[in-house]
Amino acid sequence: MSLAGPVPVFDPGEIFPDLEELRTRATEGDLPGALERLVAIGRGGASDQVTAWEVLAESDALDGPLTAHLAAHPDDRTARLLACLRRVRAGSDRAAALAAEQDLVRLVAEDRTDATAWFVRLVTAGAAGLGPSETRRRYERLRELAPEHSVAQRLMLRALVPAPGGAWDEVLAHVRLATADAPDGSPDWGLVPLLHLMRWHVESPAGETDYLRQPEVRSKLEEASERFTAAPCTSPYAAVEVHTDFAVATALAGQRGRSMKHFRALGPALAPGAWELAAAHRADLETVRGAAVAEGRRR
């Protein structure tokens, strides 16, 4: 009998009460307060901050309050930047990214030390197809300002993924560099399962899992998983995505016990990326996830 897991919760706002509180405040009458709080979240790290920005930018209910706020306060830098990210997320196409770009040029010109502005530019570089070296330029600028930006590391990895048949050297170098000095519990260890999931996805269009089951891949996944779980994750927000990647990659690699460990840490939470990528193996994954969560309840 297969155990079904709990209904997945993908929305970071539902997973983290502080993010839900921020979203409610922004969309229900106190956008200035939410913007103030948004900046404060950033004190915990630029990478965590963008998770909060993304929660707001994904919300359709933000449009009205944000438009009204900008009409009254056209110079509010945080609101202008949020409007750029909102435009990208609402449109989710090249045209939307292009429209945001022009405002971003100005925002970065006004303050080139604003890590979040560079992060949004990194997002638009990919969405608008601005070219690999421009994407890297933005990434490097961001890394100068926020060396621990794990979300940027993941974005850059995705940008480096070659077309089918292409070389993976750059991606491997990127992951090696990012994990070389990463401490235990660092979200940067999540780049390892992400790399192998991306490579599996590109090189195994039929969905067969042979690639992930190779001994050297399993060994890399195991080592990275050990390092990631050896200490509490330095970013609770980032942990959801990293645990999901590990859970999915190790399950597909046949490392069921390790996968359960990560699903257990997630509880009902999941990040959509890897979960969607492995949609063809959903039933197997649900089984592992269900068993993990059930075991977690028993403990």
Partner: peptide, 23 residues
């Protein structure tokens, strides 16, 4: 050679923009 792919134009646009709007 290794920087082909948009970075040059991006950096020049940024440099021009900084003199319009930057500190």
């Amino acid at each position: 050679l290794q920087r082909r792919g948009g970075a040059l134009a991006g950096a020049v646009v940024d440099a021009m923009a900084r003199l319009r709007w930057g500190p």
